[in-house]
Simulated scan of single mutants.
Amino acid sequence: MDDVVIRSSRPEDMPTVADLRWRWSVDEGGAVPAVQGGAYRAAMVAFATAHPDSHRCVVAVRDGVVLGMAWLALTERPPTPDRPGRRLTGDVQTVYVHPDLRGGGVAGRLVTALLDVADELGVERTSVHSSVAGETLYRRLGFGDARLLLQRPPED
């Protein structure tokens, strides 16, 4: 898909990014929204505006239309005596490609762009909580199992 451009998101992209997330969660996933679409769009715009340093978004654009997204959440680590300037950790989140672009490598290009951002920022570890469908993509991009990376899910 040579006609698809991967780039950093811009503030004016956020309503469309919100619409993609809505499509993924509500239209395709069957989630019951807690708010109407306009309120959700406003919440996404507010979130992106409030978190430019901790959350980076890249988008896939074809013919001027945003049709894919991926986010990198960044967390600073406390300093240690041997590394007082300890670096960030990153978490790949909310990777979605519109059905019109699926199967053409766009998701891989989005995640690769996020990994480039992580590398530029000196992120020492990048993780992802993958879906079953996405596992092959992430493994192909160098993600692997970490024996001591544990999680505690919320109580049911």
Rank of each mutant, 00 (worst) to 15 (best):
A50V: 08
L67M: 09
D63V: 00
F47V: 06
A50E: 14
T89R: 13
T94K: 00
R56G: 05
T80N: 11
P78S: 08
M44F: 07
G38S: 14
A46S: 12
V58E: 04
V58K: 03
R83F: 09
R62C: 05
C57S: 13
V45F: 06
G64Q: 01
R62L: 01
H51L: 02
A43M: 13
G37Q: 15
P99G: 10
L72A: 05
S54T: 12
A39D: 15
P99E: 15
P84I: 02
L67T: 02
G37H: 15
A73S: 07
G68S: 08
D82C: 08
Q93T: 01
G64C: 00
R87N: 12
R77L: 15
P79A: 05
L67E: 08
M69Y: 02
P79W: 04
T75R: 09
P81A: 11
V65A: 01
P52S: 14
A43T: 13
R83A: 12
V65P: 00
E76D: 11
T89Q: 10
R62D: 00
C57T: 13
V65S: 00
A70Q: 07
T94S: 06
A50I: 05
P99W: 15
H98G: 05
T75S: 09
A43Y: 08
R41T: 11
D91S: 10
S54H: 06
V65K: 03
V65E: 01
